[in-house]
Design a protein around this nucleic acid. Structure first.
Lengths: 152, 152
DNA sequence: CAGAATTCATTGGCTGCCCCAATGTTTTTT
DNA sequence: AAAAAACATTGGGGCAGCCAATGAATTCTG
């Protein structure tokens, strides 16, 4: 008995609640997939951003990915320890660290990106390609805090 | 200089990443709103579910909202301490606790529901009503782990 | 009907993400 | 030259999610 604990709780129709549940599932899928390469989600995100942005300061990385400076230090620490990136003082601005991806990092990234993409495909498996695009569009507009940064 | 740290990082186009960011903003908005009544998000969700489901066991609440039994214990502890719900042994099954909303809980819920709805309106302010409905639909299908519970 | 399996509430612990404050160094602004 | 800001770092805290183990109560099964 009581086979379906499905009840249309009022909460479950709220965007904030659905976002939380969907994000939790997404995180679970991606984290599990990346774990097969010994990689964690935020680490993979930072590694990917470093690959795109070239030598980049931790502050810029943090702004680009909305990661706290403190957490960024830890993540880059780990990535350096695994020799996926290098951290060297920026000669043009000695406050900054120039974070650069290493050849090993590039190879690792290629693998983890595949895993991440596969996990995202599984996450959105119930959606048609058009629906997936629209979801991305809607989420982008909702997640955006930085569209009206200085509207005054 | 460096006015826009906006860079189309590959990561930022992934559903899993966008979900995380959007969920974080939703949580921030809702949590801040509910905090004005001294309420926290999960507590409000449980209170709302209790109001809908009547006297209900903690296990059913947990299944309905995907909350871990451990966390449910803590939440109901808090709600009982604030006299928003009562927790009494179920006479028909003495393993279960019958959780019931109190008159105070009903009044509080009325206020916190308004705050939660307002926060969700702000969260989805950039969307038209139709887009908001579609977002809810897409998220429901993505978040759903319980659609194929016993497909075998 | 007696033993096995399950369910329930509870306790304990562990990880990840997010946020804030303070410090010393370096750069930029005034 | 002094003040203000940015950067990397250290430290601390809160909240959400997840898993393991336990004892009591119920249901299933032989």
């Amino acid at each position: 008995m009581a086979e379906t604990p499905y009840v249309p709780t009022r909460i479950r129709a709220l965007p904030s609640w659905l976002l939380g549940r969907a994000a939790a599932r997404g995180h679970r899928l991606v984290a599990d997939a990346l774990a097969r390469e010994g990689m964690r989600m935020m680490h993979h995100a930072v590694l990917s951003a470093v690959a795109e942005l070239g030598p980049v300061s931790q502050a810029d990385l943090g702004r680009s990915l909305s990661i706290d400076p403190k957490d960024m230090v830890m993540i880059v620490n780990d990535l350096v320890a695994e020799e996926l990136v290098t951290r060297a003082p920026d000669p043009r601005d000695r406050r900054k660290n120039a974070v650069t991806i290493s050849p090993t990092g590039t190879r690792t990234l290629r693998r983890t990106q595949k895993l991440g993409d596969a996990a995202n495909a599984e996450l959105t498996a119930a959606l048609s390609p058009a629906e997936r695009d629209q979801l991305i569009d809607l989420l982008t507009r909702i997640a955006a805090p930085g569209l009206d940064d200085r509207c005054s």
